[in-house]
Design a protein around this nucleic acid. Structure first.
Length: 275
DNA sequence: GTGCTTGTTGGCCA
DNA sequence: GTGGCCAACAAGCA
């Protein structure tokens, strides 16, 4: 589920642990999420350390602890971070539980496509520094989008927007939202865009990232993912994309769903033309 | 039981 | 070498 803004939302969920000492660590030792780091190393590295800060970038989370210890979490499709009372008993899908004296910081992931990584050192791990510049950074320019489009000229726009090396944090629904706002058909080949269309695409990438962060990342702790749709205005494609018989909020015409680039894609034929 | 699922990766192929 | 496409990963839900 989590894309850019949802990842940021989950990052904030662990804020009650900031500045707190981890008094105990519980892990689900056989879970697939630990394929990047042995659970014994995670337990011994984090126990007794203090959570100093956290960051979210693209679909990744990085938590910095004292003792030059870092915990990376990728939530992938079904991961979620939670805060529970200190005496929380781990459920079936709670793979990491970091206990402070007041809270339990929980990382859960039913499908286990996500991963948990441990890093030791004064600097953040290499995979973190190698992430593409965020959509809202000065490095994410219309020129960079134009250059990338030239390299991926023969791929449909939908598939191109999902490439994290240029559009970090963009997932399925964000890609559809961006193309819908830019009035570009998801099947258009990236190489076919005019310079003006490239600029529009870039602008809508930034706009959707900003809107998503403002709307989703700032939700309160009481909000849970099933309530997500409630908070999102009906003027977005988001609220209509999965509903059978959904209609385009701008034209009122029926929406279409089809697989493009290997992913279910929703668009408004009245607004997004192929030619 | 069947058929879906908002992500990523590696292997295959053009 | 580059880039597009697909299956696989695993569990829950309708």
């Amino acid at each position: 589920m989590p894309e850019l803004a949802e990842v940021e939302f989950f990052r904030r969920r662990w804020n009650p642990g900031l500045g707190q000492r981890i008094v105990a660590v519980a892990v689900h030792s056989r879970a697939r999420v630990f394929r990047g780091a042995p659970t014994s190393a995670i337990v011994s590295a984090l126990r007794g350390q203090t959570l100093l800060s956290s960051s979210a970038a693209a679909k990744h989370l990085l938590f910095r602890f004292s003792g030059d210890t870092w915990l990376g979490i990728h939530l992938d499709m079904s991961g979620e971070l939670l805060v529970r009372p200190a005496d929380h008993r781990p459920g079936k899908h709670d793979h990491v539980v970091l206990r402070t004296t007041t809270h339990a910081l929980v990382s859960a992931d039913p499908r286990m496509f996500g991963r948990v990584d441990l890093h030791r050192g004064t600097e953040p791990p290499p995979w973190w520094t190698a992430l593409a510049p965020p959509l809202l950074s000065p490095e994410f320019t219309a020129t960079a989008v134009a250059e990338f489009r030239r390299r991926r000229a023969r791929a449909p726009l939908k598939a191109v927007l999902l490439l994290q090396e240029r559009f970090p944090g963009v997932g399925n629904w964000m890609a559809d939202e961006i193309l819908w706002r830019a009035a570009l058909h998801p099947r258009r080949l990236a190489g076919s865009l005019t310079p003006a269309e490239v600029r529009t695409l870039w602008r809508e990438c930034c706009r959707v990232a900003r809107l998503a962060l403002a709307t989703i990342a700032g939700r309160t702790e009481a909000d849970t993912p099933p309530d997500l749709n409630v908070r999102i205005p009906d003027t977005w494609l988001f609220n209509h994309r999965w509903r059978d018989g959904g209609r385009c909020p701008r034209t009122g015409c029926p929406l279409v769903r089809e697989e493009i680039g290997g992913r279910t894609t929703c668009w408004s034929p009245a607004r997004q033309k192929l030619t």
